[in-house]
Design a protein around this nucleic acid. Structure first.
Lengths: 195, 195
DNA sequence: ATCACTTCTTGATCCGGATCAAGGAAACGC
DNA sequence: GCGTTTCCTTGATCCGGATCAAGAAGTGAT
């Protein structure tokens, strides 16, 4: 079996079991998509045509506000799902952008394939329901964290939660994720060394 | 028809059409639940046993962090859905609390009723999918807003978006929603008067 | 009407992030 | 190797929110 599909299956099974027959139906539906470093799957104003499973690489999902200020909503690495569901289903332009921070390989579903997958593979549908719920809860936690903790605490938690990302992602992107300027992050790190 | 059910139907149809027959199946499933002011539907550590449609009243959905600091994730008024989906489905204790800020009337689904509704009423299932997507997107926007805008801007946007809530909800709850102290909100409002 | 409690405001001080500016370090091109 | 660009750090100043404290205004109970 193609290793990308094998990893997709392992990823699904980590959440919800799927039979051989079901996975055989599923595997034909997404297509392998390669992205170069810096490339966008979609940008502010585009319609997000795909929902994709990240097989290799690392991406950032971000927005700019009216003043051009940029904030990163999440980083996606191996095993994450990416896409703008709202735009994907409504066919309306998205306010968000998705950019590869490294060369990436994705298993990408277009709308027809994704709907077919949900209809013909019940375990996949169930899997997605669980995933969405968790994503929703995770997002709530992030909102809460943004409101309650100091940038320093957020940095500590980020390091603890995603130690490997620290080595893959430039600090100014991490600052944009934490909601502060690169200068502020630099000072936080400097303060920390003493301890 | 009972006016609470009529409003539920109107609310669903605002998003997705539902036939008479389908709504007849649906209407029997939730039960009317009354809450007094200050009462909780669930609290941190409880399991959220219901997902409910707010027919009357106003509630707040909030969390406390380790230091006891409280932040409100959303206010729910007539037409909103409330509940902690993660806890509702996983049967795990929730980290969040849901409290009535006024006497409330809810149409509440327990897990069995909710699953039955989704299985037997396809339009309802479709309706919920759309709702969840919007809720997810709305939550992302809130996270982004929390990270990019100043408390003063957030206050302005809140007033513009929820003008009626300003009259129903004490300011210290609005401060908790905006992520600031009541003192800071008071000063923001004082600054604003001049303009 | 009075008392208690809740809610909101104001004052003073402290602290940390934003901003503007500049310099150092590392990566990458040719 | 050299030079350029990218990335990170450091400095100085400003500003606004947090905190502690006190008081005012509004609300409800008896």
């Amino acid at each position: 079996m193609d290793p990308a599909h094998a990893r997709l299956r392992a990823h699904i099974e980590a959440t919800h079991p799927i039979s051989d027959a079901e996975f055989d139906t599923l595997r034909a539906l997404p297509s392998l998509m390669r992205m170069k470093k810096g490339e966008h799957l979609f940008q502010q104003g585009d319609i997000s045509k795909y929902v994709a499973h990240v097989d290799k690489g690392c991406l950032r999902y971000y927005t700019n506000n009216a003043d051009g200020l940029e904030r990163i909503l999440y980083f996606a690495v191996e095993g994450w799902w990416v896409g703008d569901l709202e735009s994907f289903y409504s066919n309306e332009p998205t306010a968000n952008s998705l950019q590869a921070l490294e060369p990436c390989e994705l298993l990408a579903f277009n709308l027809a394939a994704f709907e077919q997958a949900k209809e013909t593979v019940p375990s996949f549908r169930k899997f997605l329901e669980i995933k969405w719920r968790r994503a929703y809860t995770g997002n709530q936690e992030r909102t809460f964290q943004a409101m309650t903790s100091t940038p320093e605490e957020r940095y500590e938690q980020f390091v603890k939660k995603y130690p490997t990302l620290m080595e893959r992602i430039p600090l100014y992107h991490i600052a944009a994720y934490l909601g502060i300027t690169p200068e502020a992050l630099s000072r936080i790190r400097a303060r920390r060394v003493g301890r």
